[in-house]
Write a protein that binds this DNA or RNA. Structure first.
Lengths: 199, 199, 199, 199
DNA sequence: AAATAACCGAGACGGTACGTCAAGTCTTGAG
DNA sequence: CTCAAGACTTGACGTACCGTCTCGGTTATTT
């Protein structure tokens, strides 16, 4: 079981009334929607309680603080499934992967990045958990790429793709500029393909 | 004059008692030190007031909010001067630049990144100002590189260096892993040099 | 239940943790003591919070503003019990009542008067509540007078006593001159008795 | 010269540029209008400065604090001139005097009463000045009454009138109830005339 | 005429208190 | 033991005025 499952804070053995899993879903859904509406900084646990209909106690029983709550919410969202490589050329597949990754990061992981900025210093364990989530999508992505075009790639290209593509997109998002088509093309043609191609 | 000079909020022409530039320095110094001590999120304007000996109103008269204050403080710090390329090989120079950039980002700019991330949504103008600060160092950096080794570089290599190196280092820092020598070597040999070299 | 009970602002039926009546007492006691020490104008809610050991929010949860807090505190004080008429002559009883009233007003009600004066414009309901408090003592006072000497009084004399005696004493206090024995004698012999005596 | 003339705080001998009496008027007029608009408590010196076009320095050079400013403003207003006794009966004259006094107090002296409440404790000299202002109207009033109907009055009736009438009206105003016709009639017939008439 | 001294506007400055918000903990009653 | 509700302490927020202090510039009197 993941380190961010909703029994993070304290869990006594199965005694007394069991936790209501409906509350879990309500809390995480409310967190996700508020996160995309207002961003990490503006997100208040009080607002999560209000929208989810849960008492603050119920939230704090599950998550130590805002960072843990956000991490759990992001992890809880429908798991990211990168597109299968369907194109014929390597560029097509890299391009579609980059497009998907850019949207995934800029739409869903923005809150997580905020939590990372905020939570890193205070809680090493939590920061590690958030790193893991952030990388889940990145690594899941390389599998398809490898299966489809291993022979055309330079050795060690797949992890390099995950590292560089994520880094450049995250940087772009953090800096607040849009990940539009021109940027994706630049990323693919000027950075990724030169690095990936067997030289 | 810079957009983040301490007369950011409101400033009429020369009327009334002029602002005390000593207060400016005290405020920005206190902000910088508290920023590196406690990080962006934990930084409170009240603490800045306390340490700088300035009244809260004196701070709010100059900076609208925490993000603007942090931006001004980071801009105010001793300007980052990248090392002059002194090595003989291209790799030497790229390596020293990357080393310097990694330390600069991980030591000084983490607070700026947090502020950027927090302020983006609320204030587009502020976000733009902070982007400008971030890029100031990046571009300053590429000048020396260009002068020294222009003939050995692929066309358009210099801005590419700034973009990719910053992105990968920032990502590493955000994710909370150390920018040690091994990482720098990996960055230089596996990513930067292949991209920069005339093919 | 009185309109100034400490559930003045908002109160839902029995839900959640009930208010701590110990906090009520501490707040009102601190208010009373600070009121007599420093007067209405100098009384700050922050000081009440400090002395009572309650948080500012706990005070604001109960009382909208300083005027409401002061009104509640004055009402909370040990109820004013005028001396029973023990003298034989009407003058003796009127004199003792006037003496008691003068001390009561000049010692305890000055803060209340300040609050009344300040709160009147902003909150008609609050002003009415404070009028009620002011009159509580006045009317309680006339009961004994009536029981003891009804036959010797002019019709309608009791409320007239309350009105005129309070007015003259308050005026004296507001104007800042002492309510000494000479003044009391003057009040009784030149003003009150001529008005009260059956003509 | 009055103790509240606009040279209250510090006045050096006739050296340097003399004070601008236009500033005096502007400041006191602004104070009076703001006083009637918002009451004593809500009146801020900053607002007086804004409305009068005077700098805060210019106000503080003249008046120590808000109480002194208000006292000067009330004293500065067009001097109160009670109506000449024109009626034939004593009741008519007493009634017109009471009516005039009630309006004068409730319209113009409310701010002064607030200043009295606030300033009494802090500044005995100022409180005395304000007392003097408050009594100016009261005593001016008795002259006409005495001239016109001395033979019909009980000995010592005139000061008694000033004392009791002012007290009852001030009390009514402080408590926040209207000084309407019915109240005036009650005051005249039930309180004043019985006290004044030769018995 | 120049020097001097007080005046005036504007507004910065260190403070104090305001009234509000959210964080995280605790207490009740019901299930 | 869980849950909703909500009281509680704490700490920071951003604002309003306070009373004091420079500034540049304006009158007046006094050398």
């Amino acid at each position: 079981m993941s380190a961010l499952a909703p029994d993070d804070v304290t869990r006594s053995p199965a005694l007394g009334r069991p936790r209501d899993s409906g509350r879990d879903r309500a809390i995480l859904d409310a967190t996700l929607s508020l996160l995309t509406e207002m961003g990490y900084e503006q997100l208040s646990i009080e607002a999560v309680a209000g929208r989810s209909g849960a008492a603050k106690t119920t939230i704090y029983r599950r998550y130590r603080d805002k960072a843990a709550l956000v991490a759990a919410a992001v992890e809880h969202r429908s798991p990211a499934t990168p597109p299968q490589p369907e194109g014929e050329s390597l560029r097509e597949n890299v391009h579609s992967l980059a497009t998907w990754l850019a949207r995934s990061i800029s739409e869903q992981d923005v809150g997580l990045l905020g939590a990372l900025f905020a939570g890193m210093r205070n809680d090493a364990g939590l920061a590690q958990a958030m790193r893991r989530i952030l990388r889940r999508d990145e690594t899941a992505m390389t599998d398809g790429l490898l299966r489809q075009a291993a022979e055309r790639l330079a050795p060690g290209a797949a992890p390099l793709f995950a590292e560089v593509a994520s880094a450049v997109i995250v940087h772009r998002v953090v800096v607040g500029e849009p990940c539009d088509a021109a940027f994706i093309a630049h990323l693919v043609d000027d950075i990724l393909l030169p690095l990936l191609r067997r030289t």
